[in-house]
Design a protein around this nucleic acid. Structure first.
Lengths: 137, 137
DNA sequence: GCACAATCGGAACGAATCAATCCGATTGGA
DNA sequence: TCCAATCGGATTGATTCGTTCCGATTGTGC
């Protein structure tokens, strides 16, 4: 019931990127690590995950860096959390997923978890980077 | 962003207890383990946690067992999760708690986490054992 | 009053996941 | 063509979680 530190750091990092990224400016991992105070390797790992998820676009080579692939208003906390921790689900018995529960047939709690998952996901999807960093658009 | 297996098992166990416990009947850990299919030691550990949290009342000695200390309608998922995993909070920077975040001064995301935490907690508090097990009262 | 049996409660072990770190592959510029 | 700076993946260590086992407590039956 507590998201991992990586996801927390990712949210902070994306918020800082949204504040600084003035449209086309690219940020590198080093400057962002210095600004946020996070360790550099951690920032690198987060950048890898986020770029693999498609939230940011990275450019290699000298003077490279990364920038947001979408506007800040179109990125929500749910996107970031799913990019770092995988699909949002409080239990293993989500519909369409794996079935590792050995008491699935006698489990009458399962249908109710979907509603709870939807509520949690909606709570995270309702907050965007724009509302976090104060950017109007 | 995924609650532990213990909490999941605890919810299942409490649901089964709510179905069987007809007011004053006491359940023992062995029968409940046989019915739910969970390992006996796990059930014992869950009973320990839940009794320490005050959700169930345990009785030692021959013919002992445990029963719900409150009506099924007065016990929510939030109570069970908090009994097993501690306070519900997605991050370490909850108001009134510990301050382990080294970038707290530059963190502008912090005020928004409280709203998210409240939404999640409300989603869990809105579901009671009565709605899970189908007991009318 | 005593012994027995069944139970809860806490402590110890092993496994899995997570977080942090390091090195190699790729790419743009000079 | 060479160099330098960067991203990407792989490795190591630590923390936490899950499971299991053993001792303390208590009520019953004789």
């Amino acid at each position: 019931m507590r998201l991992s530190s990586l996801a927390d750091y990712a949210v902070v990092m994306m918020s800082a990127a949204a504040r600084h990224c003035g449209g086309v400016a690219r940020l590198n991992a080093t400057s962002l690590a210095e600004e946020t105070g996070l360790p550099l390797p951690t920032v690198q790992k987060l950048v890898s995950r986020l770029s693999a998820a498609g939230l940011i676009e990275s450019a290699r080579g000298t003077g490279g860096g990364f920038r947001l692939s979408r506007p800040a208003a179109a990125i929500s906390l749910a996107d970031i959390v799913e990019a770092i921790e995988g699909p949002i689900g409080m239990t293993s018995c989500v519909d369409g997923g794996r079935h590792d529960c050995c008491i699935e047939e006698n489990c009458r709690v399962k249908p109710h978890w979907n509603a709870v998952n939807g509520a949690v996901k909606g709570a995270l999807a309702g907050v965007s980077l724009a509302s976090l960093s104060g950017v109007p658009a």
